[in-house]
């Protein structure tokens, strides 16, 4: 059977605004990917445990509350600790330009902000998921 890209869409932290996460999940499904959605209020630990059990190719993190600098790098770090740093991590939300270099440095491979076409996210995943 053909390999299907499997993506975890997760909302770390307390932010309950899941419109973006859900829209992206649907768009990825319509692009032929298998998407696991965790729901809101997930800790980085829960997200990482889920990513590992599900053996996903990529993890998309969505946060609109401004807690991204704490939460996103934590996810990458925990993945690393578990030897799962082959999983691609990207993020989305209200994220100021000034924070982007730090997040990239921490291992978040791309940041998609409001107004990003879902096509761009799809392309990014397709191009960066390693086989």
């Amino acid at each position: 059977m053909a390999k299907r890209i499997k993506v975890l869409i997760a909302k770390p932290g307390l932010d309950g605004h899941d419109r973006g996460a859900r829209v992206v999940a649907r768009a990825l499904r319509d692009a032929g990917m298998e998407v696991i959605y965790t729901g809101i209020r997930q800790t980085p630990e829960q997200i990482v445990a889920t990513a590992i059990q599900e053996d996903v190719d990529a993890v998309g993190l969505s946060c609109l509350s401004g807690a991204h600098n704490n939460l996103f790098p934590k996810v990458v770090q925990l993945l690393r600790e578990q030897g799962a740093d082959d999983i691609l991590v990207f993020g989305g939300g209200i994220i100021p330009d000034a924070d982007i270099p730090g997040l990239k440095q921490a291992g978040i491979r791309a940041i998609f902000r409001p107004g990003t076409p879902t096509e761009e996210t799809i392309r990014f995943i397709n191009e960066n998921v390693s086989e």
């Binding site: 649907r26 319509d30 298998e34 998407v35 696991i36 965790t38 729901g39 889920t50």
Partner: peptide, 8 residues
């Protein structure tokens, strides 16, 4: 594709 939401 699929959305797998049971885990929530």
């Amino acid at each position: 594709g699929a959305i797998l939401g049971d885990r929530i």
